[in-house]
């Protein structure tokens, strides 16, 4: 216990020393008020009326989806691969899914308190509104598709916790629907990055050819849908209780 406290204190002192040296003594040369040429380019071009502009006062979104668009595109693909990996490890065919739903339905249904349910309903509506404003205003204010999408996934998680996964699946939030919506989001992203090539003869992801901020807006909406339903897909498949999985596997072995 004494050793733990010592280790913790020495880490803290080391951290504060490094923070002091980097910020006040400026040993790495990161401080200073002057702009570097690259940031000057971004600041002057992101919301200009001509040249390599992306028609967006939000420079971060402009960098993320336009100037460094391929980074974000491949990030989206990495996310896609992660979700496909989770799905292929934990996949169930149609019959097994039916069986899993039956088993979950037969579980003793424990109701949450009325207060918890009512509060969750209110909070979920607020989170959905905020996540929509984060994502749909992503080209005007801080935020964007990924941020809004993850906030939306949190709202769905609150519903899972307060009302159980089974209730939501009965209301129509099934694996089939979430995967379809995920595919729709990815399709919107792909359509937007290919639109400049098809319509204007530009390059892939040259979205400043599109009228106004359509390019950034479409990419934000696509990412919003993709991230929301991608997370939901993973949570739906991971939320199946372990004993249901074991039951299904045992049945597969007996067949």
């Amino acid at each position: 216990m004494k050793r733990d406290a010592l280790v913790a204190a020495s880490f803290l002192i080391a951290f504060i020393f490094i923070a002091y040296v980097v910020t006040v003594k400026n040993i790495l040369g990161l401080g200073g008020e002057e702009l570097r040429p690259l940031s000057e380019f971004y600041l002057s071009h992101a919301f200009a009326h001509e040249g390599l502009t992306s028609h967006s006062p939000e420079v971060v979104t402009a960098i993320v989806w336009n100037y460094r668009g391929f980074d974000t595109l491949f990030e989206t693909f990495v996310f896609f691969l992660a979700i496909m990996g989770a799905l292929s490890i934990l996949r169930l065919d149609r019959e097994q899914l039916e069986h899993a739903r039956e088993l979950e339905g037969s579980m003793p249904h424990r109701q949450m308190d009325l207060i918890v349910k009512a509060t969750t309903k209110l909070v979920v509506v607020m989170i959905i509104a905020i996540s929509a404003s984060i994502a749909l205003h992503g080209h005007l204010t801080p935020g964007g598709g990924f941020q809004g999408g993850s906030a939306m996934a949190v709202a769905a998680l609150l519903l899972f916790a307060a009302f159980s996964k089974f209730t939501l699946e009965r209301r129509g939030l099934t694996l089939k629907h979430t995967i379809s919506a995920y595919a729709a989001g990815l399709a919107l992203i792909l359509a937007t990055i290919l639109a400049p090539v098809v319509l204007y003869g530009g390059k892939v992801l040259e979205i400043n050819l599109l009228p106004g901020e359509t390019g950034l807006f479409n990419l934000d909406v696509g990412e919003y849908t993709a991230v929301t339903f991608g997370f939901l897909t993973v949570f739906l498949i991971l939320g199946i209780p372990e004993w249901v999985f074991k039951n299904i596997l045992r049945r597969e072995l007996n067949d």
């Binding site: 935020g143 941020q147 993850s150 906030a151 996934a153 949190v154 998680l157 949570f235 991971l238 209780p241």
Partner: peptide, 26 residues
């Protein structure tokens, strides 16, 4: 860095916690 704050809070407090709770439940 408000963009990072929005993503980091939602992921670290919401999604990550839920994923780990699901993993602990198994």
């Amino acid at each position: 860095a408000p963009d990072i704050v929005l993503a980091y809070l939602a992921i670290a407090v919401g999604a990550y916690t839920a994923l780990v709770i699901l993993a602990i439940s198994k």
